[in-house]
Protein backbone atom coordinates (compact mmCIF):
# COMPACT_ATOMS: atom_id res chain seq x y z
CA UNK A 1 0.00 0.00 0.00
CA UNK A 2 3.03 2.24 0.35
CA UNK A 3 3.12 2.21 -3.44
CA UNK A 4 -0.23 3.97 -3.36
CA UNK A 5 0.76 6.66 -0.87
CA UNK A 6 -0.53 5.13 2.33
CA UNK A 7 1.06 7.25 5.08
CA UNK A 8 3.12 5.59 7.80
CA UNK A 9 0.95 4.99 10.88
CA UNK A 10 3.35 6.75 13.24
CA UNK A 11 3.03 10.14 11.52
CA UNK A 12 0.22 12.52 10.72
CA UNK A 13 -0.31 13.67 7.17
CA UNK A 14 -2.27 16.80 6.38
CA UNK A 15 -2.76 15.90 2.76
CA UNK A 16 -1.84 12.57 1.28
CA UNK A 17 0.58 12.51 -1.57
CA UNK A 18 -1.08 11.70 -4.87
CA UNK A 19 1.62 10.05 -6.86
CA UNK A 20 1.30 8.57 -10.30
CA UNK A 21 4.31 6.40 -10.98
CA UNK A 22 5.11 3.25 -12.92
CA UNK A 23 5.43 1.27 -9.68
CA UNK A 24 1.71 1.61 -9.22
CA UNK A 25 1.03 0.28 -12.69
CA UNK A 26 3.34 -2.66 -11.97
CA UNK A 27 1.49 -3.40 -8.73
CA UNK A 28 -1.83 -3.53 -10.56
CA UNK A 29 -0.34 -5.69 -13.30
CA UNK A 30 1.68 -8.18 -11.29
CA UNK A 31 1.00 -8.08 -7.55
CA UNK A 32 -0.21 -11.44 -6.21
CA UNK A 33 -2.91 -9.77 -4.12
CA UNK A 34 -4.42 -8.18 -7.21
CA UNK A 35 -4.41 -11.56 -8.95
CA UNK A 36 -6.12 -13.19 -5.99
CA UNK A 37 -8.78 -10.50 -5.78
CA UNK A 38 -9.48 -10.72 -9.51
CA UNK A 39 -9.81 -14.49 -9.24
CA UNK A 40 -12.08 -14.20 -6.21
CA UNK A 41 -14.29 -11.67 -7.93
CA UNK A 42 -14.55 -13.92 -10.97
CA UNK A 43 -15.48 -16.93 -8.83
CA UNK A 44 -18.15 -14.90 -7.08
CA UNK A 45 -19.61 -13.75 -10.38
CA UNK A 46 -19.53 -17.25 -11.86
CA UNK A 47 -21.83 -18.46 -9.09
CA UNK A 48 -24.55 -16.92 -11.23
CA UNK A 49 -23.89 -19.49 -13.89
CA UNK A 50 -26.90 -18.64 -16.07
CA UNK A 51 -25.72 -15.21 -17.16
CA UNK A 52 -24.70 -14.62 -20.75
CA UNK A 53 -21.28 -13.19 -21.42
CA UNK A 54 -22.81 -9.76 -22.10
CA UNK A 55 -24.77 -9.84 -18.88
CA UNK A 56 -21.74 -10.89 -16.90
CA UNK A 57 -19.64 -8.08 -18.36
CA UNK A 58 -22.39 -5.63 -17.51
CA UNK A 59 -22.43 -6.93 -13.96
CA UNK A 60 -18.67 -6.48 -13.62
CA UNK A 61 -18.83 -2.89 -14.87
CA UNK A 62 -21.74 -2.03 -12.60
CA UNK A 63 -19.90 -3.48 -9.64
CA UNK A 64 -16.56 -1.81 -10.30
CA UNK A 65 -17.43 1.41 -12.10
CA UNK A 66 -21.03 1.99 -11.01
CA UNK A 67 -22.12 2.23 -14.59
CA UNK A 68 -23.04 -0.13 -17.40
CA UNK A 69 -20.49 -0.65 -20.16
CA UNK A 70 -20.79 1.39 -23.32
CA UNK A 71 -21.43 -0.50 -26.54
CA UNK A 72 -17.81 -0.19 -27.62
CA UNK A 73 -16.58 -1.38 -24.24
CA UNK A 74 -18.85 -4.39 -24.37
CA UNK A 75 -17.38 -5.32 -27.74
CA UNK A 76 -13.84 -4.80 -26.44
CA UNK A 77 -14.45 -7.06 -23.46
CA UNK A 78 -16.03 -9.72 -25.66
CA UNK A 79 -13.05 -9.49 -27.99
CA UNK A 80 -10.75 -9.98 -24.99
CA UNK A 81 -12.66 -13.09 -23.98
CA UNK A 82 -12.37 -14.48 -27.49
CA UNK A 83 -8.65 -13.86 -27.92
CA UNK A 84 -7.82 -14.96 -24.38
CA UNK A 85 -9.88 -18.12 -24.71
CA UNK A 86 -7.94 -18.94 -27.87
CA UNK A 87 -4.64 -18.15 -26.14
CA UNK A 88 -5.59 -20.38 -23.24
CA UNK A 89 -6.84 -23.15 -25.56
CA UNK A 90 -10.39 -22.96 -24.29
CA UNK A 91 -13.46 -23.30 -26.44
CA UNK A 92 -17.21 -23.53 -26.29
CA UNK A 93 -19.01 -24.19 -23.06
CA UNK A 94 -15.81 -24.58 -21.08
CA UNK A 95 -14.79 -21.06 -21.98
CA UNK A 96 -18.08 -19.48 -20.88
CA UNK A 97 -17.58 -20.45 -17.27
CA UNK A 98 -13.78 -20.81 -17.09
CA UNK A 99 -12.55 -19.19 -13.84
CA UNK A 100 -9.11 -18.25 -15.25
CA UNK A 101 -10.67 -16.53 -18.25
CA UNK A 102 -13.02 -14.46 -16.12
CA UNK A 103 -10.24 -13.72 -13.67
CA UNK A 104 -8.46 -12.18 -16.68
CA UNK A 105 -11.56 -10.09 -17.44
CA UNK A 106 -11.80 -8.94 -13.83
CA UNK A 107 -8.10 -8.12 -13.82
CA UNK A 108 -8.59 -5.97 -16.92
CA UNK A 109 -11.31 -3.99 -15.13
CA UNK A 110 -8.93 -3.43 -12.18
CA UNK A 111 -6.34 -2.03 -14.59
CA UNK A 112 -8.72 0.43 -16.26
CA UNK A 113 -7.60 3.94 -15.43
CA UNK A 114 -11.19 4.86 -14.67
CA UNK A 115 -11.27 2.23 -11.95
CA UNK A 116 -8.04 3.50 -10.43
CA UNK A 117 -8.52 7.23 -10.68
CA UNK A 118 -12.20 8.10 -10.82
CA UNK A 119 -14.03 7.93 -7.47
Amino acid sequence: MLTFDLPLPDTTVGQRNRSNVPGQALALMNDPLVQQLAAAWARESLKQSDLTDRERIEQLFLGALARPPKAAELEQMLALLRTQAAARDLSGAAARLDPALWADACHVVFMMKEFVHVP
Binding site: G23, L26, N30, Q76, A79, D104, V108, K113
Partner: peptide
Protein backbone atom coordinates in the same frame (compact mmCIF):
# COMPACT_ATOMS: atom_id res chain seq x y z
CA UNK B 1 15.11 -5.01 -7.87
CA UNK B 2 11.67 -3.57 -8.26
CA UNK B 3 8.56 -5.04 -6.73
CA UNK B 4 6.13 -6.64 -9.14
CA UNK B 5 8.39 -6.33 -12.17
CA UNK B 6 7.91 -9.99 -13.07
CA UNK B 7 4.79 -10.71 -15.12
CA UNK B 8 2.42 -13.00 -13.26
CA UNK B 9 1.06 -14.70 -16.37
CA UNK B 10 2.56 -18.00 -17.41
CA UNK B 11 2.55 -16.91 -21.03
CA UNK B 12 3.48 -13.46 -22.32
CA UNK B 13 0.57 -13.56 -24.76
CA UNK B 14 -1.94 -13.73 -21.92
CA UNK B 15 -0.60 -10.53 -20.43
CA UNK B 16 -0.36 -8.81 -23.80
CA UNK B 17 -4.00 -9.60 -24.59
CA UNK B 18 -5.11 -8.13 -21.29
CA UNK B 19 -3.02 -5.00 -21.67
CA UNK B 20 -4.31 -4.50 -25.21
CA UNK B 21 -7.85 -4.65 -23.85
CA UNK B 22 -7.01 -2.13 -21.13
CA UNK B 23 -5.49 0.18 -23.71
CA UNK B 24 -8.61 0.03 -25.86
CA UNK B 25 -10.90 0.67 -22.91
CA UNK B 26 -8.76 3.57 -21.68
CA UNK B 27 -8.75 5.16 -25.12
CA UNK B 28 -12.52 5.32 -24.88
CA UNK B 29 -12.38 6.78 -21.40
Amino acid sequence: ALANVQPMEAQARWQQNKLAAVRALDAGA
